[in-house]
């Protein structure tokens, strides 16, 4: 298949830059702003698209480890017990091996939601020790994940010190000379 997204995105960016943007009424501020946002978004998509699958697999692996740790850390009453049971059921499902990109994404979503329910439940009927342990685990897991999230959108330009954020390829363990879409 020759007609793939990277070429299409590149062509759209060129058309927007060379033809569409110069033709927009300079007094139409809303249209001017949105045309530039379209260009910025397309450039971001072009960078993210080849890495999306690796990104999701990376998150899933760490999320599973986090959820396993919750199984032992989160202790409490009926709310916590019920939330843990739902999480345990999900964890018994198939792992990363041979899963499609859509399945990986769905599994990430499920574990995010079910672990979130455990956190809420522990703060409803868990002991103070369990709350403390769960809090520490969530903060540690989030530190790793948010660093990747920040790197994922680095080219948007929000960061005050962008050099302090490692490139996403490095965080995902992808060598610079290896194609990302393995």
């Amino acid at each position: 298949m020759q007609m793939r997204a990277p070429l299409q995105i590149q062509s759209i960016i060129k058309a927007m830059t060379d033809v569409v943007l110069p033709a927009i009424d300079p007094d139409n501020k809303l249209a001017q702003e949105q045309a530039r946002l379209v260009l910025g978004s397309l450039a971001l998509i072009a960078k993210q698209l080849p890495l999306q699958y690796r990104y999701d697999c990376d998150e899933l692996a760490r999320l599973e480890a986090f959820c396993q740790s919750l199984q032992s850390l989160a202790q409490g009453g009926t709310e916590t017990t019920g939330a843990l049971a739902a999480l345990a059921l999900e964890l018994r499902e198939a792992g990363v091996q041979s899963a499609s990109p859509e399945e990986i994404e769905q599994r990430v979503r499920n574990l995010r939601q079910l672990s979130g329910a455990v956190i809420t439940a522990v703060y409803v009927d868990g002991s103070s020790a369990a709350r403390k342990d769960v809090r520490a685990a969530v903060l540690a897991m989030s530190k790793e994940q948010v660093l990747r999230d920040r790197s994922w959108v680095l080219s948007q330009g929000w960061e005050g010190d962008p050099k302090s954020i490692p490139p996403i390829e490095q965080l995902l363990g992808i060598a610079a000379d290896v194609p990302a879409s393995v």
Binding site: L30, L37, L44, R135, L139, S142, V146, Q156, W158
Partner: peptide, 26 residues
């Protein structure tokens, strides 16, 4: 909205703010 593209773009700033949230709770 009249500017869904802006709303979607702004989502990107949220990750920096999430990190601030994490540090604040910590």
């Amino acid at each position: 909205t009249h500017q869904d593209v802006l709303v979607t773009w702004l989502m990107g700033i949220g990750y920096m703010l999430l990190d601030e949230m994490r540090e604040l709770i910590e």
